[in-house]
Nucleic acid binder design. Structure first.
Lengths: 207, 207
DNA sequence: GTCTATAGGCAGATAGAC
DNA sequence: GTCTATCTGCCTATAGAC
């Protein structure tokens, strides 16, 4: 099988490996915190070779955001399929972020949101697209949970989705200062527990 | 009155103005996103003059964190005095962050948490100190609200305080992508509404 | 596609005159 | 305390050989 028949968008092995390394570097150090030299050193190639695949740093950023969003969308779709239970779906969603925290990473788009002034207008729009997509997925899941009686929360599903996304991004951010993944997990658990439906009369599992 | 008799820590006018400018630059562009040249240009002095007051960029960062935390602590104390009502205190707390958002800024310590790998161990500790202090204040306020019956939330006040802080930091972060202060305000309002006590039987103001 | 070589600029930081 | 001048190094990016 030729590389050209890859699932989506033919891309040389090197380009893909550059994206892997750059993604990690951005999530750990920020867009302004890494250089082409870091990427090339990690891969054992020269800086010029990196520029061959991604001429400018903003080209690199654009591809990073695009790939990240595409992968995230895939993960969300898989969760939706695998978890008819809305509460379980939310827990899986949070676990997605938890894995990044465990690897000392911030969400790629969260990091870029902090450094937004370094990005041109086009990339800012793409960044919003990522958050929009996440919020839409969360809103759908929340609505499903509310209808099934598994979830209980204030306001509209869309508004609650925004809050949920913000809380998770913030929990990742703050957890960095403590380098403590457990802290993130605990905060996330609280968040989800807070919107689990609390049954008052029937003897459901009330903790 | 001589400058030496300033409220705390004698500091020349220039040093203070450097901190003002640097603080804004960090909150808007990040620690890795500004330079001594930016600071000096804004103040109309030379780079060497900035280095005279703060020899290294990390010296500058240390003073920024220290001053920010001191000012924040002052603001929290004032809120505590002015608002016997816990719910009002939390709203004032959120408004503190809201003002930063309106000026296109991230919380100084939130931004530095994102760029934590650029900071030496000592500064990471100071950063944690800021978050610890905020969480402690929030936990006290939450406990007060719960006891008075004004607030209702899951888990311990300390755990809820962490969640609240994370959510606010995250809401600031995400709001940057949209450059929309209203988005932050709405998310904050939801957050506070979610833990306002919902009276079930007495005809309290239920929306 | 990778390399060597290099341009051109800006970064953080220092020495020493005024 | 501010200045001029300068150092050294790294940054992003490009030209052109292999």
């Amino acid at each position: 099988m030729s590389p050209a028949s890859s699932p989506r968008r033919a891309q040389s092995g090197t380009a893909s490996r550059i994206l892997d390394v750059a993604e990690q570097l951005v999530q750990v150090h920020g867009f302004n915190g890494f250089s082409y030299a870091d990427v090339s050193a990690e891969l054992g190639i020269r800086k010029a070779s990196v520029h061959h695949h991604f001429p400018t740093k903003l080209d690199l950023a654009a591809h990073l955001i695009e790939r990240y969003q595409r992968r995230f969308a895939g993960a969300l779709a898989r969760i939706e399929n695998a978890s008819p239970d809305a509460q379980a779906a939310l827990a899986s969603y949070a676990a997605l972020y938890g894995e990044a925290v465990r690897r000392d990473r911030l969400c790629l788009c969260g990091m870029l949101a902090a450094e937004i002034t370094a990005l041109p207008r086009a990339l800012r729009t793409r960044l919003r697209g990522f958050f929009d997509e996440n919020e839409a997925w969360l809103a759908r899941t929340l609505e499903r949970g509310r209808k099934s009686g598994a979830l209980s929360f204030t306001g509209s599903p869309a508004a609650q989705a925004r809050l949920l996304l913000s809380a998770l991004e913030g929990a990742m951010l703050v957890a960095r200062a403590y380098r403590d993944a457990a802290r993130f997990e605990a905060t996330t658990a609280m968040l989800l527990a807070g919107m689990a439906a609390r049954q008052r009369r029937r003897g459901g599992r009330q903790r």
